[in-house]
Nucleic acid binder design. Structure first.
Length: 387
DNA sequence: TCTGGGGTCCTAGGACCC
DNA sequence: TCTGGGGTCCTAGGACCC
């Protein structure tokens, strides 16, 4: 079963700001003049063609009378946790796979629900509404992909059940772009071969498809076009990466200013690593030039770490030549980002650690404790704060 | 029209090792 | 003098998802 909240970001904002409740044309993602994209639009605004992922400016032109709000991550997280608590009560395995969606695995519950899961789904929808005030749609199917597509099909505020044996027929009516994993680029490439609908793949000889898109792509496309998908639901283990990035209100050309932001981003990333008891095996620097050309530079670390200053040195070594290259192209910097990758569980400290490093770790842990009580901004490096 | 932020997975080439 | 096969790790970019 796949549960998907309807216009999640919009509705959470309405809950938190009652003055938005009477407003039919609502766009969440940022203020009208911001350099961002639409996170979510009310059904009213969608009638004007506003879609998530669309630049805010474009949305403002399509729907000039809309109200634009930014929204608060913590509010989304709270609502999401409430939904998780509800679904967790209804199936042996249940997990959220995003702020606004989750799966429930009912494998092995045939005796409990011999005919259909429709009634449970109804109950879950009601409970979510009672607890959070939010509407949701639910898809039921023999595998994750089908359940996911079914919840999409059900939207808004409905339930769609696809019983075993119906998979192939159910997906036969869909456009290829409706299959998870087929994004805009792939859809265009397939369209270049005259392929637009799932039904076409179902009828095409595999050898011919393979000739068009290659063996790997053909195999996965055929599998999905038959309505087959994963049936296992497993909580994911350790994170693979932790990152922070920011797009500037105006492009930046000053190395000093960028260095300050770099330190601030590293502080955030390192703080989260320590929070989750992780250590980074490598650092990735990301720069986006004014003309949207985006480069990443990566450096492996000799020793995994979650300490700010051990990430700063390699990050700066990556930054210097990358920034020089941007200068050579006469480009300002639009976005700066830092990621910690190659993550592993942080190990217990080395017995023979250099005393200076021990002190740094102790200071860092004191800073973490202050931040836990008074917020992240309660303590900062002079370099970040200073002018 | 002027393009967010947080992630995951895949591909592909090169260095290096046996 | 010209050349294998398998493996791992590193790096860069791209597609995709919410």
């Amino acid at each position: 079963m796949h549960v998907d909240l309807d216009a999640f970001f919009v509705e959470v904002c309405r809950q938190r700001q009652p003055e938005l409740r009477g407003i039919d044309l609502l766009v969440v993602g940022g203020k009208r003049e911001s350099r961002g994209v639409v996170q979510s639009a009310s059904y009213g605004a969608r009638k004007f063609g506003v879609r998530s992922g669309m630049p805010i400016g474009q949305a403002a032109r399509l729907c000039p009378n809309a109200t634009f709000v930014k929204g608060e991550f913590v509010h989304y997280r709270e609502a999401s946790h409430a939904v998780r608590a509800v679904i967790g009560r209804h199936a042996p395995i249940a997990l959220m796979t995003g702020l606004d969606e989750g799966y429930l695995d009912f494998s092995g519950t045939d005796l409990l629900y011999p005919v259909s899961l429709l009634e449970v789904a109804e109950q879950i929808r009601n409970e979510i509404h009672t607890v959070t005030g939010l509407d949701s749609s639910i898809g039921i199917g023999p595998n994750r992909m089908i359940a996911k597509i079914a919840s999409d099909y059900a939207k808004p505020r409905a339930i769609c059940e696809v019983r075993p044996g119906w998979e192939r027929g159910f997906v036969a009516g869909l456009a290829l772009a409706a299959l998870p994993g087929v994004g805009p680029k792939t859809a265009r490439r397939l369209a270049d071969h005259g392929l637009n609908d799932v039904a076409q793949i179902q009828q095409l000889p595999p050898a011919e498809l393979e000739r068009m898109v290659g063996a790997d792509e053909a195999r996965s496309l055929i599998r999905r076009s038959q309505g087959r998908g994963g049936t296992v639901l497993r909580a994911h283990d350790l994170a693979k990466s932790v990152s922070r990035e920011t797009t500037f209100f105006k492009d930046i050309t000053s190395a000093e200013e960028l260095d300050r932001v770099l330190l601030m981003l590293i502080a955030r990333v390192a703080g989260q690593l320590r929070d989750e008891a992780l250590a980074a095996g490598a650092v990735v620097l990301k720069l986006r030039h004014s003309d949207f050309v985006t480069v990443t530079r990566r450096r492996a670390l000799a020793t995994p770490t979650a300490l700010d200053h051990e990430l700063v040195a390699p990050a700066r070594e990556l930054f210097a030549p990358a920034f020089a290259a941007a200068r050579a192209r006469r480009q300002g910097i639009r976005l700066l980002g830092i990621a910690a990758v190659g993550l592993r569980a942080s190990e217990t400290p080395d017995l023979f650690e250099a005393p200076a490093r021990t002190r740094t770790r102790e200071v860092t842990s004191a800073v973490d404790q202050v931040r836990a009580r008074f917020g992240f901004d309660a303590v900062q490096r002079g370099r970040v704060k200073g002018k």
